[in-house]
Design a protein around this nucleic acid. Structure first.
Lengths: 230, 230
DNA sequence: CTCATATCGAGAAAGTTTTATCGAGAAAGT
DNA sequence: ACTTTCTCGATAAAACTTTCTCGATATGAG
């Protein structure tokens, strides 16, 4: 009994989840160009990726294509949306209304990706009461009640590293089930809570390491002395 | 002939590179607390990670520890810094002085992690001439000359998705060797150029998929009809 | 209508990354 | 000084991801 639901929503590689938005964007552009059908090979060619990998990722969504033809473009876009949950709106609250928090509040596209940041909170009296992109910054202490009343499941953390853990705890105790953490801190959450870290320094480490490797900088060899011991 | 340089700067898992900053931050906090020695087991306990994994990652830096003791804390911090290149300053230019670009210009900590954003560029006449966190926004067309004169190797892209590819091409042709891309776009770079994507929608996809999986939402089953065919 | 071709879908193979296991050596207690 | 215990460093196993290969099938050409 195979069918649309034979694809169990399990065992989806993290890597595939990260690539689906790439396909999604590319497909949406094609949609505007009036294309009707698309094959994995097409997508792979456009994006410079491996065709097999693209096919495997697309298969995850559960859509069934036709040999020699591919997939109806509109359907594929909707299958990806549906698979990722981008067609099912979720509300979110933001903690930390600094420059990064403000930038996040300004991301209008989050809406069309199922993520609605409906309130912002901060502890700084100077920020409280300000309106940022249409939302008034509220005192952090109001967050738990708000989350409970709005049945919000997602919390976005854009605070300082120092405040990140306590804000997380506050959110979790209020019922938040997923944390999107932009603070440069390693926070702990209970098993049941999903944690997505967006730590710039992770990226920075990768970038600077790779750059130096490519430019031929010797990793050791300056700054640290090895003399003395063997 | 093993020694400090026996650790070739190759084959470093991406995952390790992303975890080293976590250790680094934790270690720096310990340093402030006056701790002198640290073991991988200690770190693992504090961060809630697997001790073996922590040891593997730390080994990548090339530092040699002592059984039963661990590593001198100060040394370990410096080895990580050195390994990641955070003790060797690199200049960078930013394209796109919107809210995200401004936020990035305000990240003072980048400096202490070897990344100096020394100039900002935009194409919007309203933004050009503004001072953001001490740097004046310059016309995008000045970027290539600036990059060449300053021997800048890193380009940060915080433009719209539409502009990302052309800005990338501009940077690459000017000699940029590493692109840190914050625009929600899949950009293409030549083989020799390192590309680090910081696409929020990758994260968002992962987050919303996992949240729905955990909350028991059926991925298929609404929005799309399967009738007709088969 | 038949054949050639392109693409899906599935399974196998190769390559990575993570986790587990074990021996050696340093410190601390007896 | 001897034994115990802890941790490093290395090797081995397991899990996961990516890449390769192949048969089935739909389209278009002859």
């Amino acid at each position: 009994m195979r069918g649309p639901n034979s694809n169990l929503r399990r065992d989806v590689p993290e890597a595939s989840l990260r690539r689906l938005p790439i396909y999604y964007r590319s497909l949406q552009e094609m949609l505007l160009s009036g294309v009707a059908q698309v094959s994995c090979a097409d997508l792979a060619r456009i994006l410079g990726l491996d065709p097999t990998q693209v096919r495997k990722d697309i298969e995850m969504t559960g859509i069934v294509g036709k040999p020699r033809v591919g997939y109806p473009l509109g359907d594929l876009v909707r299958w990806i949306e549906n698979f990722l949950g981008w067609n099912r709106p979720k509300t979110a609250v933001l903690a930390g209304a600094g420059s990064l928090g403000s930038a996040l509040l300004g991301y209008e596209k989050f809406r069309s990706h199922g993520m609605l940041i409906i309130a912002a909170f901060d502890i700084d009296p100077d920020k409280i009461g300000q309106r940022i992109h249409g939302r008034e910054v509220q005192p952090l202490m109001f967050l738990p009640d708000f989350v409970r009343q709005a049945h919000t499941l997602v919390g976005v953390i854009a605070t300082s590293a120092a405040a990140a853990q306590s804000v997380t705890d506050l959110m979790v105790s209020a019922g938040i089930r997923a944390i999107w953490n932009f603070a440069p801190a390693h926070i702990q959450v209970p098993e049941r809570v999903i944690l997505q870290n967006e730590d710039l320094y992770h990226s920075l480490a990768s970038l600077s390491f790779k750059l130096e490797s490519k430019m031929g900088v010797t990793p050791t060899g300056n700054g640290i002395s090895y003399a003395e011991d063997n």
